[in-house]
């Protein structure tokens, strides 16, 4: 396997920076160790121990994205609209993503890039995803919010990554997963090594057997969901921090009398407005309905439709919940598989 000495990491990032913005987890200035993926510049310290508050999904599905600009203009008698699609011109590379984040990119790919016609092939997502290189740092330790071992491959998942780094003495073993990864691993910054991969993190596990059905069985028990969701503040953090949540809303914003832009912005099913209909009716009026939907989508509807969970066990929704909710408690409360 290929190996990169620790002292070559800066050189690697500089090499990547030549034609891409390199995103790496860093502590935000003036905060008590709030970690976010941010553009890396030489000298910036990369934080790989703490968990970032947000996943890397923003690099392919940004919190806000201008899809196109529009402008009204008069052509003779008629009003016409001129549209200019915003093109992505920048490449991006992410360094020290976690396996759970990278794996979720594949889930998003299936939704946004499906060639079968079952879902939409999204040009903006395609441009960002095609311009993204993912270097994952495999986890050799975890915290009590992690539960990726519940899912296939756990911390050893390689899906979604181009290159995976395994921390070993003096540097990192590098496993190429894609052609881009192989190209990188062939750089002169890497060398051959016969070191062994380190043992990876074993996290807490949740019982996933028949979970989809267990959720459906409980669907009509609204009192169960009221009890489950009663501490939930109904904010959008868990959705926005989730590497697999992908809901969005689309808005037109006028920027002058005659011109504006169409934006795609993250949306979250925990918000009241998410299902609010123009008639004023809301099919999910209580936090309980919304909480039920969020869980059932992740662990029942999505697996039934697409054969995989909409969760990779990253634990962000547990670590960052302002009300201390733990999704695993709910799964437990649904009873044994």
């Amino acid at each position: 396997m290929r190996f990169i000495p620790e002292e070559n990491i800066t050189a690697l990032l500089l090499r990547l920076s030549e034609n891409a913005t390199v995103w790496a987890p860093q502590v935000v200035r003036d905060t008590v160790n709030t970690v976010l993926f941010a553009p890396w510049r030489e000298g910036a310290e990369i934080e790989t121990g703490l968990y970032s508050a947000l996943p890397v999904k923003g690099l392919v599905l940004p919190a806000t994205e201008r899809l196109f600009s529009f402008r009204y203009h008069r052509a003779g008698e008629r009003e016409k609209i001129e549209i200019e699609v915003d093109e992505l011109r920048e490449r991006a590379a992410v360094f020290a993503a976690r396996a759970c984040d990278a794996k979720a990119l594949v889930t998003l790919d299936a939704l946004f890039l499906d060639g079968s016609g079952r879902s939409y092939n999204d040009q903006h997502y395609r441009a960002r995803r095609g311009a993204l290189t993912v270097i994952t740092l495999a986890c050799t330790s975890c915290d009590s919010a992690c539960f990726c071992s519940s899912f296939e491959d756990g911390a050893a998942a390689t899906a979604g990554s181009d290159l995976i780094f395994y921390p070993v003495s003096g540097g990192f073993l590098a496993e190429a997963v894609s052609a881009t990864g192989r190209e990188l691993a062939a750089l002169d910054l890497f060398q051959e090594s016969n070191l062994e991969k380190p043992p990876l993190a074993e996290t807490a596990k949740v019982e996933l057997a028949r979970l989809g059905q267990r959720l459906l069985d409980k669907f009509d028990d609204i009192d169960f969901w009221r009890r489950t969701a009663e501490g939930c503040l109904s904010c959008g953090y868990c959705s926005y921090a989730c590497p697999a949540c992908h809901c969005f809303n689309i808005f037109d914003e006028m920027e002058s009398d005659r011109a504006g832009g169409r934006y795609r912005c993250w949306d979250a099913c925990m918000f009241y407005a998410y299902t609010l209909e123009s008639s004023g009716h809301n099919p999910r009026p209580e936090a309980a309905h919304r909480y039920r939907n969020r869980l059932a989508h992740k662990f029942s509807y999505f697996p039934l439709n697409r054969g995989e969970f909409l969760c990779t066990g990253c634990g962000r929704c547990i670590r960052g919940c302002p009300a201390g909710r733990d999704v695993r408690d709910v799964i437990k409360a649904l009873g044994a598989g």
């Binding site: 947000l54 503040l233 904010c235 959008g236 953090y237 302002p322």
Partner: peptide, 12 residues
């Protein structure tokens, strides 16, 4: 520039 508009501030 970091705000993601999750409205946790408001909900809490």
């Amino acid at each position: 520039s970091r705000c993601i508009r999750c409205y946790a501030c408001r909900e809490a």
